[in-house]
Design a protein around this nucleic acid. Structure first.
Length: 276
DNA sequence: CGTCCAGGTCTAC
DNA sequence: GGTAGACCTGGACGC
């Protein structure tokens, strides 16, 4: 069936840029086309393919999973206010044509695990860890919290080679599996940014970087993702010899609750060849 | 071979 | 509250 690519505020959605904004959702079991024209994901109930189907539309191969697809593309997010501000900024006016939606995983749990697997290691290492979780524990889909909680330590150490992160992942999976931790509740828009931030930072393995990344994925765009990639990339873009975190935050302050999104789009503008 | 560090975080001062 | 050291892993370097 077809779904319309339009945000909750009626604003356009750039399908290709949503797919190519390189969030952790591009990791297995999700596959994203190099040109951003389609993506696939493997759910416990089967594989789903989503592809561009004319301007403003996408085709979903399995109608049962439309709700999941809408979440992954964050079609229920309203970016119209952000676009209104960006349109007045020559440097970011281009985003108003429908950019700004990082693809996300079907669950917060999956995005959290993947994000922890990006910390303090190369992207290649992240891919190895997540691939092992998916193929050796999930049977092709992302493993459930129950499965991840029941995997023994030797899997994390010898197979997935998650290093010291293994303890974090097992702890989080156990808490979610037992019901003591409800990560999906963090999607609730009624929660304040402060509350969500506090809950994320309370999780083992989640520090300032991982928290900022997850906040973005949760549709809370105020905080900037500051890490060993974004800092030098921004410095290079601005041509300045030295930039501090305080300086970067100050530069994006005018975007207020969308500062983190404006920062991310500034850094990733070149990732999509055609910016319409 | 040893050292450094990559899309950091935790603990102990 | 701010700052060192340790931490799994494995490529990329320098010697």
């Amino acid at each position: 069936m077809r779904i319309e690519l339009r945000g909750a505020g009626g604003e356009p959605v750039d399908f290709a840029r949503t797919l190519l904004s390189h969030g952790v959702a591009e990791l297995p079991p999700n596959t994203v086309a190099e040109d951003g024209s389609w993506f696939e994901t493997v759910l416990p109930s089967g594989r789903v393919r989503v592809e561009a189907d004319g301007p403003g539309w996408a085709r979903v191969s399995d109608a049962r999973h439309v709700a999941v697809v809408r979440h992954m593309l964050r079609l229920d997010d309203d970016l119209s206010a952000f676009y209104a501000v960006a349109a007045a900024d020559p440097a970011l006016a281009w985003v108003a044509s429908g950019a700004g939606r990082m693809l996300r995983s079907p669950t917060v749990f999956e995005d959290l695990v993947k994000t922890i697997c990006t910390t303090n290691c190369t992207w290649a290492a992240t891919v190895r860890m997540v691939t092992a979780l998916v193929s050796d524990l999930g049977g092709g889909a992302f493993p459930s919290p129950v499965v991840m909680a029941s995997a023994d330590e030797s899997f994390y150490v010898s197979v997935a080679k998650t290093g010291y992160r293994g303890a974090y992942l097992r702890s989080i999976a156990s808490e979610v599996a037992s019901g003591a931790l409800d990560l999906e509740a963090l999607k609730d828009p009624a929660l304040s940014d402060l509350v969500v931030t506090e809950r994320l930072l309370a999780l083992p393995g989640v520090g300032p970087y991982a928290c900022a990344h997850l906040m973005m994925l949760l549709g809370r765009y105020r905080e900037l993702i500051l890490d060993s990639w974004t800092r030098p990339t921004y410095r290079r873009l601005t041509g300045r010899a030295r930039v501090t975190d305080v300086g970067i935050r100050k530069a994006f302050r005018p975007y207020r609750e969308y500062a983190g999104l404006a920062f991310w789009l500034t850094l990733t503008e070149s990732w999509v060849p055609t910016k319409t």
